[in-house]
Amino acid sequence: MIHAGKARQSGWKDQMPPARAWKGRAGRSKEALAAEQDRAAGGRRMRYVPVEGDQYALASVELKLLPRTRRIRAYLRWSEKGRSPSRYLGPVEHDTRAANLAAGWDLAKAKGLVGARPVPEGSWAASDSVRSVMRANRGKDTKPELRLRSIVHAAGLRYRVSTRPLPELRRTADLVFTRARVAVFVDGCFWHGCPAHFRPARKNSEFWTTKIAANQARDEETDRRLAEAGWKVVRVWEHEDPADAARRVIEVVHAQP
């Protein structure tokens, strides 16, 4: 693997390494720091270190400058039972922090310290990548929902969020206009089988085909039950343009008596 940044063979003999080679920018969020580690490791799934038994911990590479020798050293760190163990990986000698982090991860992989977690026996997700996708699909406050809500709110409409239109029916709509009796659902392309973007999983395809079909049947039942109770249902796909979807919602709300 070739990393960005010029590699040095014998450290910085005549001057200290530049801060950009090892020091991160102050004030970054935890999410930004995690993303930096994910990129350097080649993906989050490659950041796991085995700990006690069959357990795994998410590790990070830390860069430290040794002023006396003018060298940057890489360490692997993780959390385990309230402790923060570390393992020395070796010196890194690139001009950028990104390249040195990547070099540190390469050292950790070469030593057999990190890698992807094995799939638990009987897991419904056949791989780490599938489980990552599932975790990324949040139940509420997704980006499409937030954009839609922002536009609709700016248009002067008020609504309730993540509420059951019918208290006795266990169905939660993303936006609920109680006076107009309009329920809006923002449907994820994977979970609800979007005809434009849904692609069946290659592994456990029978399971996922059955799962998505059940979700679609549930959606149809929800629409029917709400219509019978006098509600208007608007369904928005997550891939839709938020402005177009918002206009559709606004038109339906205004059209209600």
Rank of each mutant, 00 (worst) to 15 (best):
L226D: 06
E220L: 11
K81S: 14
H254W: 08
S86T: 14
S162K: 09
S29L: 07
L58I: 10
A201I: 07
F207D: 04
L101R: 01
A196N: 07
W237A: 03
S29A: 08
H254L: 15
V49L: 06
R158W: 04
S123M: 07
I72Q: 06
R71H: 11
R218E: 13
G27R: 06
M16A: 15
L63M: 10
S86P: 00
G11A: 02
G53S: 06
P144Q: 09
E240H: 10
R20I: 09
A196C: 00
H192S: 05
V182D: 01
A26G: 09
G5Q: 10
V176I: 04
R138V: 13
A59W: 03
Y75I: 04
A229I: 09
M46N: 15
E220Y: 00
Q55F: 09
G90K: 05
I2G: 12
D38P: 03
Y88I: 07
A155M: 11
Y159E: 03
V119Q: 03
A57V: 08
P67M: 06
T210N: 14
G193K: 01
E36V: 04
L89C: 05
S205F: 07
S162P: 00
E221A: 10
V233K: 00
P195L: 00
Q256P: 07
R160W: 12
I72D: 06
P120V: 06
T69L: 12
V49S: 05
G188I: 08
P242C: 02
L66Y: 14
G112L: 04
R247V: 00
R248N: 10
I2E: 13
A108G: 01
R83C: 10
R44Q: 14
E36R: 08
G5T: 11
R235S: 09
A102S: 14
K81G: 06
G53Y: 03
A173S: 13
Q256D: 03
K30V: 14
T210Y: 01
S29R: 08
W208T: 04
A126D: 13
R149H: 08
W124S: 06
H197I: 05
W22N: 02
V92P: 07
G115S: 02
A125N: 06
S150F: 05
H197M: 02
A35R: 12
W124I: 13
A245W: 01
H254A: 14
K23H: 11
D95Y: 01
L148T: 11
R202K: 14
A183D: 00
W124A: 08
A214W: 03
R224E: 12
D54V: 03
A34G: 06
A255Y: 01
S79T: 15
